[in-house]
Simulated assay, not measured.
Amino acid sequence: MIESTLLGEDEATAQAARHSAASGLPDIAVSPAQGRFLQMVCELIGARRVLEIGTLGGYSTLFLARGVGVGGEVVTLEAKKTYAKVAQENFDASGLGDRITMHIRAALKSLADLDGVFDLTFIDADKPNNVNYVEHALCLSRPGSLIIVDNVVREGNILDPAEGDESAKGTRALYEHVKDHPRLEATALQTVGAKGWDGMMFLRVKS
Rank of each mutant, 00 (worst) to 15 (best):
R66Q: 09
V205C: 02
A125G: 13
L174S: 08
I2Q: 15
H19G: 06
E185H: 09
D126Q: 05
P143Q: 06
M40W: 11
A84K: 00
R183L: 12
L146S: 01
I148M: 03
G72C: 07
T13N: 04
R142S: 12
L146F: 00
M1Y: 14
D115K: 11
S207M: 13
L108V: 10
T171Q: 03
Y83E: 01
L189Q: 06
G69P: 08
E43I: 07
G54R: 04
D198H: 00
D113I: 10
A87V: 00
L96W: 01
L203N: 01
T76D: 06
S167C: 15
K109F: 08
A188I: 10
A186G: 06
C139H: 09
D198V: 05
M40Q: 14
N90H: 06
G58E: 03
R48I: 07
V149K: 00
A65W: 00
G67W: 10
K80F: 03
H181T: 04
D124Q: 02
V149G: 02
A106R: 15
N129T: 08
L44W: 09
L111T: 11
G8T: 07
L140F: 11
D160N: 11
A106E: 12
M1H: 12
G67T: 08
T101V: 13
E163A: 12
H136D: 14
L184R: 07
I53A: 03
L146Q: 00
I158H: 05
I28S: 04
H177K: 06
T5S: 14
A16Y: 06
S141M: 14
E89R: 09
G8P: 07
A106P: 14
K85E: 07
A188N: 15
H103V: 15
K179T: 15
L77G: 02
A12I: 11
F202E: 02
Q34I: 02
L51S: 08
L140T: 15
M200W: 01
